[in-house]
Write a protein that binds this DNA or RNA. Structure first.
Lengths: 129, 129
DNA sequence: TTAGCAAGTATACAAAAGGATAGTGTTGTT
DNA sequence: AACAACACTATCCTTTTGTATACTTGCTAA
């Protein structure tokens, strides 16, 4: 991506729009939430998971936040929720194609930051302010 | 990025690590915060901005949150803060090379999500749960 | 008939994030 | 002497986020 293309995208995003409701920002913010991100990563790793599995994988999450985040992901089309009316009930979650692309972007970002992390952590320790 | 590479990255990220302190997650979370993201975008657009300029561009941010986010960005090496001891004092902010790569990843994510936003917003309206 | 499971809901509370706004320090201008 | 400019701090208060945990529902097995 060259600088001109970047400036086009930034104009498109309308970053300085004073409007309260900006769908792009909303959609992005919903995706980049802490818990949401972790859920997408574990679903990317395991392909299909039940509610309790996700809960186990996303260490420290409460059922309330898990439900909330999964619902948002489902609502925005990143995750597919499938209910099997067995007894006891079984519910499976997996990424949609759209969710899978989102995962790739996330992993791409992580891939780039990982080698920088030790330096950043070191800088943080020295940065007293 | 193929699936095998993805799985390697996910293993590397150690997404299911129960440890409270995971530097990778910390660094990512700090980057993907709502205000932080907006600041990176406006700095990408204008190259160099003073405190009051950033405040004007990031609509709705309070000085407290602006300072906090700028400090985090500086601490993590995404932003350079330059003080000119004039009177009145002048402080300039701009992205570092590292911050510029971060911006590219962010814009890349946005670039992909923008065409999906209308559908997502429509789905949200229909999704009553 | 009582127990038990899965997948949540509901409730109460605690912690963190964030908003509004006043104050600080320095020095040139009126 | 009062004021203004700038880049913040500090304080108070509200909102949001999150935790912990008890409860629900529907059916099945002991």
């Amino acid at each position: 991506m060259n600088d001109k293309r970047m400036q086009e995208m930034l104009a498109n995003l309308d970053v300085e729009n004073p409007s309260e409701v900006c769908p792009i920002k909303d959609v992005l913010a919903a995706m980049l939430d802490k818990w949401t991100m972790m859920i997408v990563l574990v679903l990317g790793k395991h392909k299909v998971l039940r509610f309790a599995d996700v809960k186990r994988s996303v260490v420290g999450i409460s059922p309330k936040m898990l439900t909330k985040s999964l619902r948002t992901l489902e609502r925005d089309g990143h995750v597919l929720r499938t209910v099997y009316p067995e007894v006891p009930i079984r519910v499976e979650y997996n990424l949609t194609d759209q969710g899978y692309i989102f995962l790739k972007k996330l992993v791409d970002l992580a891939d780039w930051i990982v080698p920088h992390v030790p330096t950043i952590v070191k800088n943080r320790e020295e940065f007293i302010k």
